[in-house]
């Protein structure tokens, strides 16, 4: 892997915009932030593939488009397959000399959690196995937000959605979240990372590393959804930051299936109740429920610390 130069501050981010304003994403939707930063890093020589999802429907209602780079959408389940085809076509055109072979063309697939974790999973797995040079970015809002907050494989334990309602018997989702980034890492691809839009430079550097590898890369980005998580749009970044500060979300990267590091260490961790009480989808949780979630997190933190070999995420202090 050639070492890319990394950004040190916001001032080094390119000023060009490749996502036009006026798109139809909700006010305060952090997908806009994620895609803007991604396209700034990737530059104009980028082909974007999106499966069906919030991003696709809100940026491209015919006859409008918010994209200033080539963009394609085919169906819900096949973003990774389409991206594989685009990458193979670019390679073939470069071999035949129809496209300048020295020109580096990035192929980026941007999918939501429904189109990646559940519906598009077999296409994604196939793409990773075949080793196409595609960066797959998953923006994870933890439910099918586009169709009206239905549960997905990425919905966390005990969260309310319209298909895991809160009543007398059942109280939110019964199953834990699917560890998609680790499932992808098990394919032994060159670069896997998890990122958070509250740490913009960390996220931009992960996109840059993902684009520089020769093979598939996967970036899993948390995206607080103002509609589905039930909070005021202005607190989006705050909640994203709380997710990392409570270790509900751990920012890590795995290079060449060898080097595992936590890029945002948390020496003093906050109790998960700060994160949970900020969101309406966890309104029904009792203190015992929160303690149960805290025990899950403690176990996860212990496992991550063991993988790194030292204490990167500290004990709960607040």
């Amino acid at each position: 892997m050639s070492k890319p130069t990394l950004y040190k501050s916001i001032f080094e981010l390119p000023r060009e915009e490749y996502l036009s304003p006026g798109h139809g994403l909700c006010a305060g939707c952090l997908v806009g932030t994620i895609v803007r930063v991604l396209l700034k890093v990737a530059g104009p020589n980028t082909i974007v593939v999106t499966p069906t999802g919030c991003l696709e429907v809100s940026t491209t209602p015919f006859p409008y488009t918010a994209w200033k780079v080539p963009w394609i959408h085919v169906a819900f389940e096949n973003a990774a397959a389409v991206a594989s085809g685009v990458e193979a076509a670019v390679k073939a055109l470069q071999r035949k000399g129809l496209v300048d072979p020295s020109k580096k063309i990035n192929v980026v697939a941007i999918g939501g959690d429904g189109g990646t974790v559940d519906i598009g999973f077999q296409a994604l797995s196939g793409m990773l196995e075949r080793g196409h040079r595609v960066m797959y970015v998953l923006y994870d809002n933890e439910a099918y937000m586009n169709t009206g907050i239905q549960r997905s494989g990425a919905t966390p334990f005990k969260a309310w959605t319209t298909t895991t309602p809160v009543g007398k018997v059942l109280k939110g989702k019964l199953q834990p979240k699917k560890p998609i980034a680790e499932i992808v890492a098990a394919h032994k691809i060159p670069y896997v990372a998890t990122a958070n839009p509250a740490y913009i430079i960390d996220m931009a550097n992960k996109f840059r590393k993902g684009l520089s590898v020769d093979g598939p890369s996967f970036i899993h980005v948390i995206q607080p959804c103002t509609t589905g998580w039930r909070f005021d749009p202005r607190y989006g970044i705050k909640i994203a930051r709380l997710a990392t500060e409570t270790a509900m979300w751990i920012n890590w990267e795995l290079e060449n299936n060898e080097v595992f590091r936590v890029t945002v260490p948390v020496p003093k961790r906050k109790h998960v109740k700060h994160y949970i009480r900020a969101q309406g989808r966890f309104n029904h949780l009792t203190d015992q429920d929160i303690e149960e979630i805290q025990r899950f997190i403690d176990k996860e933190v212990e496992r991550i610390n063991k993988m790194v070999g030292k204490e990167v995420i500290g004990p709960v202090v607040e």
């Binding site: 006010a27 006859p63 409008y64 488009t65």
Partner: peptide, 23 residues
């Protein structure tokens, strides 16, 4: 008058539709 395949020939033409009235 629509291009073949319904292709949008002007990238980023969403900027023609302001969203300031959502505020």
């Amino acid at each position: 008058s629509i291009p073949i395949g319904g292709a949008i020939l002007k990238p980023g033409n969403f900027a023609e539709r302001p969203t300031g009235d959502w505020r």
